[in-house]
Design a protein around this nucleic acid. Structure first.
Lengths: 340, 340
DNA sequence: CTGAAAGCGCTTACAG
DNA sequence: CTGAAAGCGCTTACAG
């Protein structure tokens, strides 16, 4: 196989020269277009093999005005929720012959913006984004220029765009109802930063369940803030300790649940626990972990399909789709209230 | 903001016309090059804002001959090992101003090949690949043409290329030694398909530990095969049941460990267990799960750095780097042999 | 300080 | 059946 020096790939022009044909004829053969003599096609194929030619798709796509790629911007590619979602998006992208760019905002609005605009500058066919920031007006020109944007998990702010969310309030309400049904009247809520949409919606669900059961809500039962281990540990200690302690906890996401599990009082005083979001191995804990499970794959699939509807030309009003959550009772949420 | 119809973005030419300057002057302003009168630059900036222009990076990159992207081809974007690895790769890519394409082979060699070649056709600057297939000669022309390839987790086959692996044999040996140290003499090994490199290396480590301790290995203690729940359940039942049953199990990867945990005999006859690969919540099980933990982030970071060395022009011989594993004792591996 | 021309590697539209 | 020309949206190399 004759080849020029490493790093310089042969082009269609090189193939054309080698085969003694015109550029367009090479293009025809490479693209399987009809109207080429078998003999000519054979010479072209021989030259292709000889030179180790492979078409440059980036060049092809520039000419055709598409990029055959979509971008997925997550909170953290490495976390289980994001990765399950990614995989589902990938499958839809694959079915539609698109390659997938992926990136993490790391919960940093500046980084989110930077990455989103970088993807748009590459002219991806569409953008799926789990927002970290709370101002998405920077995407207005992109959307207007024809790059569809679909928000996942949380809605975008300052822009009319599709959003695919978990039914956060409904799910949280179901989880808290479950605790109430098992006899709890003093129930704590440990959540994320309160300005985050998911936290606000889940807290709303918590309040709804308490109100509909005629239970008072002591504001001291509600702890919101950063989700690092130490902060959650302090919140758990505060809510479950001392007089007037809660007998059950509802934890607002998987990071919080995980931290809480490590710092829960044990023995007879162990509070009941229902977590929002499922965890691997949750069924093997003792007691099993009762959760309101999200459907990250469902979010990804639904969001990606919606994005492709837009790519295909759907110009209807922005839609908001809620993907159902599911209560899975495994033991921790069925612990009865301890006699305090 | 005047704008042509949605879907057609303004180009530098449009900006040049609107500002009454040449194309090159727009390019200068956009790229922050010197040598433009403040007045001219102002007119250009006004036109850019007016038209909502944003440079097309795909076009820019075609001209400059780079793509400022790398590709990561995994077994399954959705699994915890892959996603931790992805995130680490992303961070290195970001530090080097590259966007990241991601894709899953789904353990299908055909899909691996198809995706890898699609990435190469886009002319990614480099390719990181967790191989599914066992023949990577199809990458020979790509590597020769200057697209560096680094294999992760398992080495490539039929091609001289860098590989970054866990120290599978060393780690497995450490895990089995741990069981031996706790009094076990009959130890079972449940692994993946035996032709998979990681399975073979871990099985080798198992044998080494047994041999160095002077223990016989009954081939019936070794179960390799698919890692679905049912198959693993049967293997576990076979190894731990009946006369001559093993008193401890070494499970060869996280899927197998997870399945085994669901089907382990309980009570006094419970075998000791050490798993290769860590699991979230492993410390909260009862007993805690003893594992040989891999370092997926370390694999990703090391692999990505190696790839960028190659991108930067390193033409040295192919390297194989082993990333250390770490034994984490949490309880399940310290169960003494039951009196059978 | 500014811009016209050529070119990155392809495809499109057209002519022979 | 085949190919020369123009163009996708930029940058490079060069001339004024």
């Amino acid at each position: 196989m004759t080849r020029s020096r490493a790093g310089s790939r042969p082009t269609m022009r090189d193939v054309a020269v080698a085969a003694g044909v015109g550029l367009k004829t090479v293009s025809r053969v490479v693209n399987g277009e009809s109207g080429v003599t078998p003999a000519t096609a054979g010479r072209v194929r021989a030259a292709i093999a000889e030179l180790g030619f492979r078409r440059n798709d980036s060049a092809r796509l520039l000419r055709t005005g598409r990029t055959a790629s979509i971008a997925l911007l997550l909170e953290d590619l490495g976390d289980p929720f994001s990765s399950a979602l990614s995989r589902a998006v990938e499958e839809v992208a694959r079915a539609r012959d698109r390659l997938l760019f992926a990136g993490s905002s790391a919960e940093d609005p500046r980084r989110e913006r930077e990455l989103a605009l970088a993807f748009c500058a590459r002219r991806v066919d569409g953008l799926l984004i789990v927002p970290a920031g709370d101002d998405h007006r920077y995407l207005l020109p992109e959307a207007a220029a024809g790059t569809p944007v679909v928000f996942l998990d949380r809605p975008g702010t300052g822009i009319e765009a599709d959003a695919v969310l978990s039914d956060n309030a409904v799910g949280a309400r179901a989880g808290v109802r479950h605790l109430i049904r098992h006899g709890h009247r003093r129930i704590g809520f440990v959540g994320d930063l309160p300005h985050i949409h998911t936290c606000a919606a889940r807290l709303r669900g918590y309040r709804e369940a308490m109100v509909e059961a005629g239970l008072p809500v002591d504001e001291r039962w509600i702890a919101t803030g950063p989700t690092d281990r130490a902060t959650v540990a302090r919140s758990v200690a505060r809510l479950t300790g001392g007089p007037g302690a809660v007998t059950a906890l509802f934890t607002g996401n998987n990071r919080i649940t995980l931290a809480a599990l490590h710092h829960l009082p044990t023995g007879a005083g162990r509070p009941a626990l229902v977590g929002f979001d499922d965890l691997e191995l949750a069924d093997l804990l003792d007691p099993g972990l009762t959760v309101v499970a999200q459907d990250p794959a469902g979010l990804g699939t639904t969001g990606a399909r919606l994005l492709f509807d837009r790519i295909d030309g759907d110009r209807g009003p922005a839609r908001r789709i809620e993907v159902p959550t599911r209560l899975i009772a495994r033991g921790s949420g069925e612990i009865p209230p301890a006699a305090h």
